[in-house]
Nucleic acid binder design. Structure first.
Lengths: 152, 152
DNA sequence: GCACTCCATAGGAAGTATTCCTATTTAACA
DNA sequence: TGTTAAATAGGAATACTTCCTATGGAGTGC
């Protein structure tokens, strides 16, 4: 349930190299923020990360935590769970369906899939409690954003 | 791409009946809020819903929109997309994995699944743009919340 | 029609979450 | 060390959501 010490050490090592490769500085704050996130399986929010980083760096600001979490997510070192930076979205389609979500503009579209229609609840999900629903979440770039990227 | 007029009419009809069944009043505001959400496939946020409802009911308040969207979601007439009312969550696990999310307490846990490991991108998802990633989102009640529900 | 009751609403205030602004600090590198 | 561009702290500003409370309105019994 906890992340092994050696796994963390390995990833901290890889982190330094990744920063060099990406041309971003390896600051004390940045390292500790990354360490907090990879050291837990509980998917903390920014305020939680901030609280934990403050134990080592009491003056770290919340803005720095946000800035770095987003930067690291942009570079693929972390992931943002759920809809990124969006407000709540509402869906009037109550039939079983899946989602395509554009990571650029936040567009969300429903689809249903013949091939995936008969998806069954994986046993692994049952170990956490009682599953209620199951759907696919596809992230990608929507056609509109693809076009505007070419244009720009 | 747009929702057919008759589908909307049918669902508005069913909406009235559902409200009666649930013992909640069919107010003008509530009807228009519902109508806005079922009339589009774009998964609007609360502010967008508010803006559209105001075209018909200029004095409608944002609070009313929020209150009703949540009420209708609670009763299963609408769905909330993504993590409900939560702040951003960060994930240090960059291997392919799926999520179990507790709808009560917001707990999120990763799992990987042998059975679902070889999931392939459904063709339907490609019609919206370029898919980048694919994962399962399981919603349910975690073991802890199950226990406390029994206790209470 | 009138009073009563309860649910729903408007509008603004309050509470969170996130981002912006800018003077200062610091990592990286010669 | 000195230089420089990137990064930071801390507070202000913004955005999103919920709370508070007086008011409104539908249904019920009279």
């Amino acid at each position: 349930m906890t992340v092994p010490r050696e796994t963390i050490a390995q990833r901290m090592n890889a982190f330094g190299k990744a920063c060099d490769r990406l041309g971003i500085k390896v600051t004390h704050q940045r390292m500790e923020i990354f360490r907090v996130v990879i050291s837990t399986e509980e998917h903390p929010d920014a305020v939680t990360v901030h609280r934990r980083v403050k134990k080592r760096i009491p003056t770290v600001s919340l803005d720095t935590v946000y800035r770095n979490l987003k930067l690291l997510a942009d570079h693929g070192l972390l992931a943002i769970v759920g809809m990124s930076q969006e407000s709540l979205r509402f869906d009037g389609n109550m039939q079983e369906h899946h989602h395509f979500a554009c990571v650029k503009c936040g567009l969300i579209r429903d689809f249903s899939s013949g091939a995936i229609g008969g998806l069954t609840m994986p046993d692994e999900a049952k170990t956490f409690g009682a599953p209620l629903s199951l759907h696919l979440e596809v992230k990608g770039i929507c056609a509109t954003c693809q076009k505007s990227a070419k244009g720009g």
